[in-house]
Design a protein around this nucleic acid. Structure first.
Lengths: 107, 107
DNA sequence: TCCCATCGCTACAATAAACGTAGCAATACG
DNA sequence: CGTATTGCTACGTTTATTGTAGCGATGGGA
């Protein structure tokens, strides 16, 4: 029998916790959809995310809110916090890489 | 009845495909563990990844190899390709962010 | 007031992904 | 020959995600 954290892999070093949070389904996508100061209602976000299940979207939103990356503004929907924008900024090179990479993929 | 891709969310825009690949469990972690030209055997990688199941690790490795990010060098184990290093480079700001963020978390 | 649309969010059964353990074939070294 | 390692797979169990439906609350008209 092996002991395991609630959702392991984040034991110890700090980077792991973020990789663990972002390595869940739709986490990266949500941040992507909220980039550039976009604000989306829960349903608009669901549409943007390819009609993903509201169950898991709410779960991710809760986690991202608890982590301080996302906030819910009454009457305006979800959007990135200052910290969340900071995170998204750090994603920019990754997104640019994705563009280049996708050209290699479809060749 | 809704039609859905094999592992959806990557439909259409190119960035999605990468987010989809990296948004799977252990993907980000594997790249992290292979950073800085490290080369790890499958079992060493398993140890590094908190004894994750070899089933899923092999699956991720296959996907990452197919995507051209990781390669298996006979007698040396797994390591990042040139493209993989390029990807890892684009992760650097994210890792640095994680360090800062983790300090806010544990407060 | 009533109707109706929308909001954020949840229940719940069905399906897919990941886990944990064990072990295979291949290779290398004694 | 044995033994240890490599990459990798089988398979039953557990966990995560899906898909559909619907809740209570809120805001506008009519």
């Amino acid at each position: 029998m092996k002991k395991r954290a609630v959702r392991g892999s984040s034991s110890g070093r700090p980077v792991m916790a973020l990789l663990d949070l972002l390595g869940r389904r739709w986490s990266l996508r949500i941040i992507w959809e909220l980039r550039d100061d976009r604000s989306l209602t829960s349903r608009a976000l669901r549409s943007a995310c390819d009609e993903a299940s509201p169950t898991v979207l709410q779960a991710r939103l809760s986690e991202l809110r608890e982590a301080g990356f996302v906030e819910l503004v009454a009457g305006d929907g979800y959007r990135l916090t200052g910290l969340g924008k900071d995170l998204a900024e750090n994603f920019l090179p990754l997104y640019r890489f994705a563009e280049r990479w996708s050209k290699l993929q479809t060749h």
